[in-house]
């Protein structure tokens, strides 16, 4: 079974560590990859694709040296491999223009303002990953214990993908 990754892109190492720590409860099922720049993020995405795995969720800062987070997200939206990846912008300084661009061109799924509430971040990650697995995975059972079991069970009921035998 191919793995579904979470990618966190953040230029400040301390902040990056905090985000990863907040999401650590998901790491057993969804391995977390870290990038300190958009450039590194692209390399990691390429590597995940090469291994035949998937990228389920990208949590991305906006203001970073070099390319901006929103640019990465717009790019991801253009690539078939990352088009359906759930995209979360985690930022304190994105202006209105950047935000509008992210929503319109990167199909941004969530916007989290810094500073954030760790519980809220996990909740959003679970929610977005639930949407991702519902859209992409045939077998939802492995995710019942970690993601939104109520939504997943509802999909199992209505889709009828698991049947008696």
């Amino acid at each position: 079974m191919s793995k579904i990754y979470i990618l966190v892109v953040e230029d400040e190492p301390e902040v990056l560590d905090v985000v990863v720590r907040d999401l650590s409860s998901l790491e057993e099922t969804f391995p977390i990859e870290m990038a300190v720049s958009v450039k590194e993020a692209r390399e990691i995405i390429a590597e995940i694709e090469e291994n035949g795995d998937k990228l389920g969720l990208a949590v991305c800062d906006h203001v970073m040296p070099g390319e901006m987070g929103v640019e990465l997200m717009i790019d991801m939206q253009k690539q078939p491999f990352t088009e359906r990846t759930r995209k979360v912008l985690l930022t304190g300084q994105a202006g209105l223009d950047a935000t509008v661009e992210a929503v319109n061109h990167a199909r941004l799924n969530r916007y989290i303002a810094k500073p954030w509430d760790p519980e809220e971040l996990v909740k959003i990650a679970i929610d977005e990953l639930t949407t991702y697995v519902i859209e992409h995975e045939k077998n939802l059972l492995p995710y019942l214990g970690i993601l939104d079991a109520e939504r997943l069970n509802e999909v199992i009921r209505s889709r009828g993908t698991v049947s008696d035998h």
């Binding site: 109520e150 069970n153 199992i156 009921r157 698991v162 049947s163 008696d164």
Partner: peptide, 16 residues
């Protein structure tokens, strides 16, 4: 109904 579909539906009741 199917035992499986029933279980999935009832779990949505039991989880909350």
């Amino acid at each position: 109904m199917s035992n499986t579909a029933t279980t999935a539906m009832m779990m949505t009741v039991a989880i909350p």
